[in-house]
Design a protein around this nucleic acid. Sequence first.
DNA 1: CGGTAAACAGACCGGCTGGACGGTTTGTAG
DNA 2: CTACAAACCGTCCAGCCGGTCTGTTTACCG
Lengths: 214, 214
Amino acid sequence: MTSPATSTVPRRTQAERRESTQTRLLDATLACLIESGYAGATTAKIESRASASRGARLHYFPTKAALVSAAVAHLFEGIAARYDRAMSEVAPDANRFRAGLRLLADTFAEPAHAAVLELFVAARTDPELREQLRETSARLHQLVRMRANEYFPNLARREASGLLEAIQATLSGLALRSFVFGETKNQDQVLDLIEHMIETTFDAPGSTRRNVDG
Amino acid sequence: MTSPATSTVPRRTQAERRESTQTRLLDATLACLIESGYAGATTAKIESRASASRGARLHYFPTKAALVSAAVAHLFEGIAARYDRAMSEVAPDANRFRAGLRLLADTFAEPAHAAVLELFVAARTDPELREQLRETSARLHQLVRMRANEYFPNLARREASGLLEAIQATLSGLALRSFVFGETKNQDQVLDLIEHMIETTFDAPGSTRRNVDG
DNA sequence: CGGTAAACAGACCGGCTGGACGGTTTGTAG
DNA sequence: CTACAAACCGTCCAGCCGGTCTGTTTACCG
C-alpha cells in the first residue's frame, strides 16, 4: 500500500500486525487450554502454536495471568456471538422452545466449552482468575437471560423462576461427563426427558401457566 | 504388646504404621486437591500435610500418578459409604423422594466433591487418570442406581429413564458454580423447582405413573 | 530520507517440581 | 539378642516453567 512490494512480504500496517499477533496468541491460548488443560497450557506451547516469540507475547501480555484473562474475554465474546446468532436463527414456525433448548445444548457441547470448564476449575483456586471470570461469566449469563426472556417470555414468570439456572446447570453437568468420557449416548435421552418435564409442568391444564412457548 | 513400654512411644506394630502412613498420605492428597487444585497439589505439599517424608511417600507410592490413583479409590470409597449411609437413614414416613433428593444434593455439595471435580477435569487431558476414573466412577454410579431403584422403584420405569442421569447432571452443574463462586442462594430455588417438575410430571393424573415415591 | 517508537526475537536465570538414591531407624523372626 | 527386612529419612539432581533483559527489525511521522 504505502510502498511497492519490493519483497515477498505483504508489508502490513502496524495495526494489522498488532491485531494479527494478538488474535493468534489468544486463539492459541484457547486451543492449548482445550488440548492440554490449564496446567498443560504453558506459555512456551502457546507461543509456539501462535508462531510468536517469547518477546512478542510479553510485549502484549506481560504475564500469563494477563494472557489468560484476555483469552477468557475473547472466548466469551465468541460464545456469546455464536449463541446470539443461533438463537436468532430459530425457525419461527417450529416448536421454538424445543429448538432453543437444543441450540443451547449444542453451545454447551462444543469444544470451546471445554476451555470454559478448565478456566472455571482453575478459577476455583486462583482468586485473580476467579474475579476475572465472575465478571465475564455474569455478562454472558445476562445475555442468555435476555435472549431467553425475549424468545420465551413465559419463562420469565415467577412460577418458572430458576428454570433457566436449572437448565444451564443440567447442560453443564452433561457436558462435564461427555468431555471427560465422551459419553453422548444418554445425552439425547436426558434432553428429551427434561423437555418433556418442562412441557408437562408448564403446559398442564391445572398449572398456573399455559405454554412455555413464546 | 510384645514388649513393655520402655519409652513414651506407643510402640505400634508394622501393620499399624503402614496403615496410618498410607491413610495420612491419601487424606492429605485429597485435602491438597480440594485446597490447591490438581496442579497445585504437589508431592511436597502432600508429604508436608501428611507429616510424611519424601522417602516414606515414595516407599508406598513410587510416582505421583500412583498416589493420585490410590487417592481416587480412597475418595470414592468414602463418598460411596457416606452416600450409602445417608440413603439408608431416610425416614420412611417422610416424603421419601424429597428427602432422597436433598440428601443426594448434599453429597454433591460437600467439599469432597471439589476433589472429584478437579480429578475429572484433570482426567480430560490425562489418559491414565481417565481410565482410572472411568472404572471407579462407574462403580459409584452403579451404587447410586441400585439404591435409587431400591428406594424409588418407580424411577426405574422406562418413562423415567434418564431421570437419574438428569438429576446427577443438574446437581453436578449446580455444584460447579457453587464451588467456583460460592453462589448458593439460587440452589434451593432450583432444587424446589426440579422437585416440583418431577412430581408434576410423574404424579399427574393423566401421566403414565402414579407416584414417584416408593 | 532519518529518527523514533513500536513490534518482535531469543539467550539467560531463579524457582520449583518430582525422582533417584544412599543412609538410618524400627519391627520381627529365629 | 542378633540379623534381616520393612519403614522411613533427606539430600542431590535433571527438567521445565515463566519472567527479565538486551538486541534487532519494522512501521510511521516530520
